[in-house]
Simulated scan of single mutants.
Amino acid sequence: MLEQSAEDHLVPMSQRERLTATLAGVAGLRVVRGQRLTGEHAAPWENGIMIHRSLVDTLRFLREDR
């Protein structure tokens, strides 16, 4: 799962797009783009609930994908 806040001024949004495209070419790998992160670069780590919710989303996705 790839997530990035639109307010992250340190990592350009194009980096997520390039990484998504690169990973999409890996056989057997499924790329999912999350939508939960907000705030500036360190905000998701400083406010751990966003990371927690992303992990919960990922685990739900993996369980449903079985």
Rank of each mutant, 00 (worst) to 15 (best):
Ala27Tyr: 08
Ala27Pro: 14
Ala27Trp: 06
Gly28Val: 05
Gly28Trp: 03
Gly28Ile: 04
Gly28Thr: 04
Gly28Phe: 09
Gly28Glu: 04
Leu29Gly: 06
Leu29Cys: 12
Leu29Glu: 04
Arg30Phe: 04
Arg30Glu: 12
Arg30Gly: 07
Arg30Thr: 15
Val31Ser: 12
Val31Glu: 04
Val31Tyr: 12
Val32Ile: 13
Val32Ala: 10
Val32Glu: 11
Val32Thr: 13
Val32Arg: 14
Val32Met: 12
Val32His: 15
Arg33Met: 10
Arg33Ile: 10
Gly34Trp: 02
Gly34Ile: 05
Gly34Tyr: 07
Gly34Asp: 04
Gly34Arg: 05
Gly34Phe: 07
Gly34Val: 05
Gln35Ser: 12
Gln35Phe: 05
Arg36His: 11
Arg36Met: 08
Arg36Trp: 02
Arg36Gln: 11
Arg36Ile: 05
Leu37Asp: 00
Thr38Ile: 10
Thr38Val: 13
Thr38Cys: 06
Gly39Val: 03
Gly39Phe: 01
Glu40Trp: 06
Glu40Asn: 12
Glu40Thr: 11
Glu40Cys: 04
Glu40Pro: 00
Glu40Lys: 14
Glu40Gly: 05
His41Asp: 04
His41Pro: 00
His41Glu: 03
Ala42Trp: 06
Ala42Gly: 09
Ala43Cys: 03
Ala43Phe: 07
Ala43Gln: 08
Pro44Asn: 12
Pro44Gln: 13
Pro44Gly: 09
Pro44Trp: 04
Trp45Asn: 03
Trp45Thr: 09
Trp45Glu: 01
Trp45Phe: 13
Glu46Thr: 10
Glu46Lys: 15
Glu46Tyr: 07
Asn47Phe: 04
Asn47Val: 05
Asn47Met: 08
Gly48Lys: 06
Gly48Asn: 07
Gly48Ile: 05
Ile49Ser: 14
Ile49Pro: 00
Ile49Lys: 11
Ile49Gly: 02
Ile49Ala: 13
Ile49Cys: 02
Met50Ile: 00
Met50Asp: 01
Met50Gly: 00
Ile51Ser: 03
Ile51Trp: 01
Ile51Asn: 00
Ile51Phe: 10
His52Gly: 06
His52Ala: 09
His52Lys: 15
His52Glu: 13
His52Thr: 10
His52Met: 14
His52Pro: 00
Arg53Ala: 03
Arg53Tyr: 01
Arg53Phe: 01
Ser54Arg: 15
Ser54Trp: 14
Ser54Leu: 14
Ser54Gln: 14
Ser54Ala: 15
Ser54Thr: 11
Leu55Trp: 03
Leu55Phe: 07
Leu55Ala: 05
Leu55His: 01
Val56Ile: 03
Val56Glu: 01
Val56Thr: 02
Val56Met: 02
Val56Ser: 00
Asp57His: 03
Thr58Lys: 13
Thr58Ala: 15
Thr58Glu: 12
Thr58Trp: 10
Thr58Asp: 04
Thr58Phe: 10
Thr58Leu: 15
Leu59Thr: 02
Leu59Val: 13
Leu59Cys: 05
Leu59Met: 11
Leu59Lys: 02
Leu59Ile: 08
